[in-house]
């Protein structure tokens, strides 16, 4: 069996939510907040929230979109914000820029809505990350499969979703190692195509394992 020189090391992650000093009561204030909040705040309300709400697969994408929908009743803006796919971003700066563009254009087009008070305020928060090695690693596809089966939601989220920012590549830890470590480029690509918005972390993991099994049968 093909064995990688560098093993895949399984890690788990845990987040604290730090409450920021900014909040928004209107769309105009949301725009100001988006322009000035920390990178950790943009991460928290997009990447991290996708992980912590993974079980909502019908319309929940990020905190900004959810607030636009439930507290300002702006369905069209909510749709535009929800359509921003974090897989397209390898830097928070680029994601922030698009969030600002979408909200800014909306406020410019509908100035009355921009100053309308929301039902509840939006509070900008930040994620503080702590990781812990699980003491498990994989060199072969079988070991890798077993490791994935034993990951919690947090561990799976860390390797599959938040890794994009860490790697600064349009891929995830799993695909990165499958391609670089085992040379399985096609499998790596299929894994990266698993939709993280319409799958829960459990169903994404099940798909990943099916793809690995299919690859195993080829060998």
């Amino acid at each position: 069996m093909n064995a990688a020189e560098t093993p895949f090391e399984f890690v788990t992650v845990s987040y604290l939510t730090r409450i920021g000093n900014q909040s928004a009561g209107t769309l105009a204030e949301l725009l100001t907040g988006l322009e000035h909040c920390s990178d950790a705040s943009i991460f928290h309300h997009t990447f991290q929230t996708l992980g912590s709400h993974h079980f909502l697969t019908d319309g929940f994408s990020n905190d900004f979109a959810q607030w636009a929908l439930s507290d300002t009743n702006r369905n069209d803006l909510a749709e535009q914000l929800a359509a921003l796919d974090i897989r397209d971003y390898v830097s928070i700066a680029a994601l922030r820029s698009d969030l600002c563009r979408v909200v800014g254009e909306y406020c410019a087009a509908y100035p009355n809505f921009a100053s309308q008070s929301a039902l509840e305020r939006f509070y900008f928060c930040e994620s503080v990350e702590v990781t812990a090695p699980l003491g498990r690693n994989a060199r072969t596809l079988d070991e890798f499969r077993e490791g994935i089966e034993h990951l919690s939601h947090s561990g799976f989220y860390f390797h599959f979703i938040s890794s994009r920012l860490r790697l600064q590549l349009r891929t995830n830890d799993f695909s990165h190692w499958l391609a670089d470590g085992l040379g399985l480029k096609s499998l790596a690509q299929s894994v990266d195509h698993i939709d993280i918005y319409t799958n829960t972390l459990d169903s994404a993991r099940a798909k990943l394992i099916r793809l690995i099994d299919r690859e195993g049968r080829k060998a």
């Binding site: 812990a132 699980l134 990951l151 947090s154 561990g155």
Partner: peptide
């Protein structure tokens, strides 16, 4: 909750 959740609590608590 699943064995992995508890295993990861132990990993976080180790230090």
């Amino acid at each position: 909750l699943g064995a992995s959740e508890i295993e990861e609590l132990r990993a976080l608590a180790k230090p």
